[in-house]
Computed example of a mutant assay.
Amino acid sequence: MQSNRLEGKTALITGATSNIGRAIALAYGAEGARVVVSGRDATRGAEVAAASGGTFIAADLDGSPQASEALATAATDALGGRIDILVNSAATYPSSADVVIDEAWFDRMFAVNVKAPHFLIEAVAPRMAEHGGGAIINLGSWVARLGVPSPVYTGTKGAVEAMTRAYSALYGPSGVRVNGISPGVIQEPGNPSAVMMRGTPAADLGTPEAIAPAAVYLASDESAFVHGIVLDVDGGRTGVAVIAA
């Protein structure tokens, strides 16, 4: 049900052409925000932009300051001169366990998953502060706190969650709230199995739509006193063990 919790706010969402980013873009649009949908796939981006009432801006966030700054500038222009909400959802990871994580893959994952959001925050947060404040939401992952045999991807998400707290300390005094969301195992292409959710209260995969309400909350005025958290929306994956009778 639409409640206009984000009425009058503007939002830039990276990785918004699919999965969690897409669900957040649709939820923000439904709550009254003006949305910039960002990603690499123009066809999917146009679909999400149309469904959210927003604008699609193509961007390949390769980790360079130039790419992040260019997106920040283009989104600011498209949103009428200000960005109130930034969601860093774009990320990359191997599509198969058989992929060899050589130096090129290592560098790519840290570039896209860590450097790109860093430089985007550095481009957006000072402008938010000049306009009186804003909200930044970084997407972490349950793997950052529960050891799985994927050390490089896990390392990138651990870095994002740690930097979220550091960014909060840096920009919070200027009125920019920085928080994170740690999704559990989510239904998406290439992840069809619920095996990793066995022994949890949810006992099944989550959906992108299950993550979006947390992003609405952290972007809204309801979370005005919330700074530097990483909110687990993971079906109990990292915090609860269900013991079978």
Score class of each variant (00 low, 15 high):
4 N>P: 12
10 T>M: 02
15 G>V: 01
15 G>W: 00
20 I>L: 03
21 G>K: 05
23 A>G: 14
26 L>F: 08
26 L>R: 09
30 A>E: 08
34 R>G: 03
40 R>P: 05
41 D>C: 07
48 V>P: 06
51 A>R: 07
52 S>H: 08
52 S>N: 09
57 I>M: 05
58 A>E: 15
64 S>D: 07
69 E>Q: 12
73 T>S: 14
73 T>P: 12
74 A>P: 12
74 A>Q: 14
84 D>C: 07
85 I>C: 04
85 I>R: 04
86 L>G: 09
86 L>A: 11
86 L>T: 06
88 N>E: 13
89 S>R: 00
89 S>K: 05
92 T>S: 15
94 P>L: 04
95 S>C: 10
98 D>F: 04
99 V>H: 15
100 V>T: 10
103 E>R: 11
106 F>T: 06
107 D>V: 03
109 M>Q: 11
110 F>W: 00
111 A>N: 10
112 V>M: 07
114 V>Y: 09
117 P>H: 05
120 L>N: 12
121 I>G: 06
132 G>P: 02
134 G>C: 02
139 L>D: 03
142 W>M: 15
150 S>N: 15
160 V>M: 00
164 T>A: 04
166 A>K: 13
167 Y>N: 01
168 S>M: 10
168 S>C: 13
172 G>Y: 00
181 I>T: 09
181 I>G: 05
184 G>E: 03
187 Q>T: 07
187 Q>A: 13
187 Q>S: 12
189 P>H: 09
199 G>D: 10
200 T>W: 06
201 P>I: 04
201 P>R: 08
202 A>I: 01
202 A>T: 02
207 T>N: 14
208 P>S: 03
208 P>H: 03
211 I>Q: 13
213 P>W: 06
215 A>N: 08
219 A>E: 07
221 D>S: 13
224 A>C: 13
225 F>P: 11
227 H>R: 15
230 V>M: 06
233 V>G: 14
233 V>Y: 12
234 D>P: 01
237 R>E: 13
240 V>K: 14
242 V>L: 14
